[in-house]
């Protein structure tokens, strides 16, 4: 285990904010805070929910700007994986989350909180696939 990088308190506090956000969206709109579903919905034709989705995404971007100003260490200071790897990663994340109807938020937080069997299986699957992928790329000596 890596004790140097372990940041339990910010992780718990940030997680609590995410849980509050999901609860706020449920209380006000009756919806699951699934980011991939919200983004995917914006790419599809308008079903009357566009305003809600767009507002949520604007909120995400606004938080990014606040973080950039108030807490710049929230973002990496140096480039990470090669751009071709990031492009492949993005394609897989976009395609996979739509095919599997959810991502870390919709399945991992909201679905697990509801004890949904589909979300529990999906969450176990994407964490296992992520662990396997990091193990393979590290073994190949690829991006850290």
């Amino acid at each position: 285990m890596n004790h140097q990088d372990f940041t339990p308190l910010p992780a718990l506090a940030g997680g609590a904010l995410i849980g509050l956000s999901a609860s706020l969206l449920l209380l006000t709109h009756g919806k699951i805070a699934g980011i991939s579903g919200i983004l995917g919905g914006l790419l599809a034709r308008d079903d009357g929910e566009r305003g809600t989705r767009l507002s949520f995404v604007v909120g995400l971007l606004a938080a990014g700007v606040v973080l950039l100003v108030a807490r710049p260490a929230s973002f990496p200071s140096t480039p990470g994986a090669p751009l071709a790897v990031l492009a492949l990663a993005g394609l897989l994340v976009g395609f996979g989350t739509r095919l599997g109807s959810g991502c870390t938020s919709g399945h991992g937080v909201c679905g697990v909180s509801r004890l949904s069997p589909r979300s529990l299986v999906a969450t176990a699957t994407f964490i296992a696939a992520g662990i396997a992928t990091v193990w393979v790329t590290r073994s190949l000596g690829g991006a850290r």
């Binding site: 991502c103 396997a132 990091v134 991006a143």
Partner: peptide, 11 residues
């Protein structure tokens, strides 16, 4: 879908 997402997440 979850498996593809996990690979992309790891990459």
């Amino acid at each position: 879908g979850a498996a593809l997402f996990g690979v992309g997440w790891g990459l």
